[in-house]
Amino acid sequence: MPMSQTIDFIIDGVEVSARPGQTILQAADEAGIYIPRLCAHKDLVPHGSCRICTVLVNGRPQSACTQPVAPGIVVQNDIEKLNNVRRNILDMLFVEGNHYCMFCEKSGNCELQALAYRFGIMAPKFPYQFPARDVDASHPDIYIDRNRCILCARCIRASRDLDGKHVFEFVGRGPEKRVAVNAEARLADTDVDVTDKALSICPVGALMRKRQGYADPIGRRRYDHQPIGSDIEAKRSATG
């Protein structure tokens, strides 16, 4: 298949041209159509776990971050049925962990929080689960706060694929699933380094560098002025 060939399909009524091998999410991003997502990241292989990016492809639910484009498909994204599902999933993530936004260092730069604002969530409708989760502050420069972890696997993938290490991995199953480190218990006993790419890729405040909290004053944080996804949508309004 020549690389110049394009695959044409439709998202929310808009005709989009994609390259072979792209996912629906990648093609939508380039076309300036924002499909909400959490576990997906442009530098990482797709994981398909948060399910926020669920779209309907010819009426069937698929995760846009893993589903390849195909000619002629009709993708529904910004529709109430799906936005309701997304609000429910966001709610689930909030109540599953312990997310204390008001004093979290990530506040204003947090993708989970930003998505909640975008979807108009002021408080989850599901009951808080208040799980007992641990904090690993053993490392001099880095800490893990599992209270805020949403199990998106970004750190796992980044450490493996971008840093060439294997500092993180999931252990446990189901509701007991958590991110563990490649050591008996402590992050300090791994080969993690403060310069690792894995450390800057966490969408929430679960994996953080020490002594850098609240660096951006309110008003200069990433999502203080525009909802998450505005950068992607700006491409479309710029091109017409």
Binding site: G48, S49, C50, R51, I52, N88, I89, M92, L93, V95, E96, I150, L151, F170, G172, R173, G174, P175, E176, K177
Partner: peptide
């Protein structure tokens, strides 16, 4: 549940 995806793990 394996816990991989949010809706099944939490829902």
């Amino acid at each position: 549940t394996c816990g991989y995806c949010t809706p099944c793990r939490v829902g």
